[in-house]
């Protein structure tokens, strides 16, 4: 069974952390993964940096730029992850924009991802119809889940379509916004969380974008299977480095 499906069967209220591969230093990928596993993180999203991250705010734009300057690319990431499954059991997802994957070759990318032990991909700018027409077979061949996003603007009809096709989890974007910490969850967001929760979708939902601290994390997990933190984690790493990652995780999960 895919590790992502396994974790949803065995645990509730998951915490998923996103980080940009190659940031702050090119070879921090494995050390960050180890720290996140030790700190008890349930799913880890490894960001493949892109020059033009359309859906990302300033924090991930900056970390992506630094990672690219450090020389990160698909080939280097797969090399770093070659033996990752000797040490890391946590479900691993690669999140990246489509063009670098397209240039690498979608089939080769999926082949290598599966080979090193990646469980799924999140590609924000690969649309649903293109995926189902052209790439779904490739993902299945390599036993990779493809996770889709929904937003407060996504129609119920489309949410049901996405739920049908989804494997792993649905990435529920918390607000109409790009990535980045805002520090609070407002009433309209809570109404949206309740609305989605009441749809009883077959695919579990993780709430991401704007989740940054104990309050926002707890608000999110009340209405979903868990939450995803990206920008706030990268801000922490920027200030504190990668040695005290467990402190960041503790602050999120325990008041």
């Amino acid at each position: 069974m895919n590790r992502i499906d396994q974790i949803f069967l065995t645990k509730e209220k998951l915490l998923s952390i996103y980080f940009t591969a190659g940031y702050p230093n090119l070879n921090d990928t494995i050390p960050i993964l180890k720290k996140l596993q030790e700190a008890g993180v349930d799913i880890i999203e490894i960001g493949l940096p892109f020059s033009d991250p359309l859906a990302d705010g300033p924090t991930i734009q900056e970390s992506s730029k630094i990672a690219l300057n450090n020389g990160m690319n698909s080939e280097k990431l797969f090399n770093q992850l070659k033996n990752v499954r000797n040490e890391i059991d946590v479900p691993l997802v690669i999140m990246g924009y489509f063009n670098p994957i397209l240039q690498y070759g979608v089939d080769s990318f999926c082949y290598n991802a599966n080979k090193v032990g990646i469980d799924g991909l999140i590609i924000p700018d690969l649309p649903l119809d293109v995926y189902t027409n052209k790439y779904e077979k490739i993902f299945k061949k390599h036993n990779l889940h493809n996770m889709f996003l929904i937003t407060p603007q996504t129609s119920e009809k489309r949410i049901k379509l996405i739920d049908d096709i989804s494997k792993g989890f649905i990435y529920m974007v918390s607000n109409s916004s790009i990535t980045g910490a805002k520090g609070t969850i407002d009433q309209s967001q809570l109404n949206y969380f309740k609305r989605i929760s009441s749809l009883n979708l077959k695919t579990p939902q993780l709430i991401g974008f704007g989740i940054s601290n104990f309050e926002t994390y707890n608000n999110a997990i009340n209405y979903s299977s868990g939450a995803i933190i990206g920008s706030a984690f990268i801000e922490f790493v920027k200030k504190e480095g990668i040695n005290n990652i467990e402190k960041f995780i503790e602050k999120i999960t325990k008041k």
């Binding site: 892109f50 020059s51 033009d52 690319n73 063009n99 670098p100 397209l102 240039q103």
Partner: peptide, 22 residues
């Protein structure tokens, strides 16, 4: 340029071998 995706469209675009837009 090579075939790739920029600003939501598949087209010819200037990029490096890793698919980063130049």
């Amino acid at each position: 340029g090579k075939e790739g995706i920029i600003h939501g469209s598949k087209t010819l675009l200037m990029q490096n071998k890793d698919g980063q837009i130049t």
